[in-house]
Amino acid sequence: MAVDRFSVLFRLLGAVSILVLWEIAGRQGWLGTSFPPLSEIFGVFENATSRRLFARAVSATLYASAIAFVIGALFALVLALLSFTQPWSERGLDTMASSLYAVPTISFGPVFILLAGPANTAIVLGALSTFFPIYVALTSALRFAPRGYDDLATVVGASRQKSFFLLKLPHAVPAFVDGLRMGAPAAVLGVILGEWFGASRGLGIVIISSLQNVRISQLWAAACLSIACTFGAYVLLTVIYRAAYRRFAW
């Protein structure tokens, strides 16, 4: 108990000192003019117009991220189940998944502008980034279920379907949700990246236009909001993950 309280205290202290250091470094201009103090970054939100701008950008990005997340997760689910139940597809799907992962997401941008149009590129890149962690988590949980489960299934003469639905699938639930937890922030990042290729609104757009117009504080504000969004997605899914873990694992 005491240890817990201390570690929380230390973490808080660490976070606060970083923020204070940031403020001082910004005010003193230690890292140049492109590194503003925190107060200036948050000052951006005092302006009603930019508040509206950011609200619109955040909701556009989150909306696109949610869609990307759902699409990516569905694809991962379907393909993971396919690769597990249809051994002939396993090799090909694994290779496809890891090649997609090995190539930097941003390099797909131009391809998808052509294929999906600039407006949808954000969602496609978001879905693509979500896909990999979920696919990997789910396939490995399905493949590496405890040997005892297979033995049990064999000994009671269970059919493949029964063993899959009663043993393998529930066993894989925590890993799947863990994959979702990794995939959620990836969706947000993918969407922001994709927005650079010509979405009409979103945090990625704000970042690009701030950069082009040299509005440093606004750029930082957009970056901070992006981080808040990915972190929020992660925290939300972590709560769900904990619940799934409590319910399905030892």
């Binding site: 405890p146 005892g148 489960y149 033995d151 049990l152 000994v155 009671v156 003469g157 043993l167 529930p170 066993h171 639930v173 319910r247 399905f248 694992a249 030892w250």
Partner: peptide, 16 residues
């Protein structure tokens, strides 16, 4: 025919 009963060394119960 589902007529063998086994209790394994590592019980293999399902946590869920």
């Amino acid at each position: 025919e589902h007529r063998i009963g086994v209790a394994f060394q590592d019980h293999a119960l399902l946590p869920w």
